[in-house]
């Protein structure tokens, strides 16, 4: 197990939090009510806080003299290893909630396992994050029920979002060669074992929300290998703007 193995493993987890945190922060000030605005911003804050813990650890592991911000802002698109789900746009509130719920359920299960990692840093980050993510899951799950079993209009919108985002769920369980290596060493998580309980959980909630389960056989993937959707370039050009325009400065 080299530091490089660990660093690449962290990207596969932390980049999800960074990109989803960035996506949700786009909504700050534009929520459907002040209460949801505040709650979604809280989720973004949690995710970005988690990202910082992971990237600080990357900076420690790296042989180069780098900071959390170098990790966050100065990689090329291909070097970000987040799943495609989290980079999907804020099309409407239904997409925001479904994206969040699909991610939160996975995130919670992943952290539950990561808590038992042999790596003490992973243990500590997972333990702290679990408290936050159990709240995220409750928030997005409750809202998905409201949207699904609310009005005709909300049901249509929620169903549309579920249908469109379902194709990004399978990638959550994709293991890269590096992921396998880190999992086998007892540091990382074998996510393939989470797949069945994951689909059981989200299927049960979708049923409670009176929504249909999509009958999709084909799933999108690529993010974990750094091949992203067209949305990713725009996310990064926004996010990296200052660091790229004014290199090597302190902010």
């Amino acid at each position: 197990m080299t530091n490089d193995n660990l660093i690449h493993y962290i990207y596969g987890i932390a980049d999800n939090s960074l990109i989803l945190g960035q996506r949700i922060s786009e909504l700050c000030g534009h929520g459907p009510t002040l209460e949801t605005d505040i709650a979604l911003t809280n989720i973004a804050l949690d995710l970005l806080g988690q990202t910082r813990s992971y990237y600080k650890y990357v900076a420690e592991l790296s042989p180069k003299d780098i900071s959390e911000d170098d990790v966050a802002f100065l990689r090329t698109e291909r070097e970000y290893k987040n799943v495609l789900l989290v980079e999907q746009p804020n099309t409407d509130f239904a997409y925001v909630i479904v994206r969040q719920y699909f991610f939160d359920v996975f995130h919670f299960m992943l952290l539950k396992e990561l808590e038992n990692s042999k790596n003490v840093n992973f243990q500590a980050i997972a333990k702290k994050s679990l408290k936050e993510v159990s709240y995220h899951k409750r928030f997005s799950g409750d809202w998905l029920k409201r949207l699904g079993d609310g009005t005709e209009e909300s049901k249509l919108k929620a169903q549309q979002a579920v249908n469109d985002l379902w194709v990004y769920t399978d990638e959550l369980f994709h293991m890269t060669a590096n992921d396998k290596k880190v999992a086998e060493a007892g540091y990382g998580v074998d996510t393939t074992t989470l797949k069945v309980p994951y689909y059981e959980t989200i299927t049960a909630l979708l049923k409670e929300a009176t929504l249909d389960i999509p009958d999709t056989k084909y799933f999108q993937k690529g993010g974990k290998n750094g091949i992203h959707t067209e949305h990713m370039g725009y996310i990064l050009s926004d996010m990296q703007y200052m660091q790229r325009t004014y290199p090597d400065m302190k902010w």
């Binding site: 459907p32 409407d92 509130f93 409201r146 609310g150 009005t151 209009e153 909300s154």
Partner: peptide
């Protein structure tokens, strides 16, 4: 744009 969301909650 949030009206349908608030309606759904009610």
């Amino acid at each position: 744009n949030g009206e349908w969301v608030r309606d759904a909650a009610v």
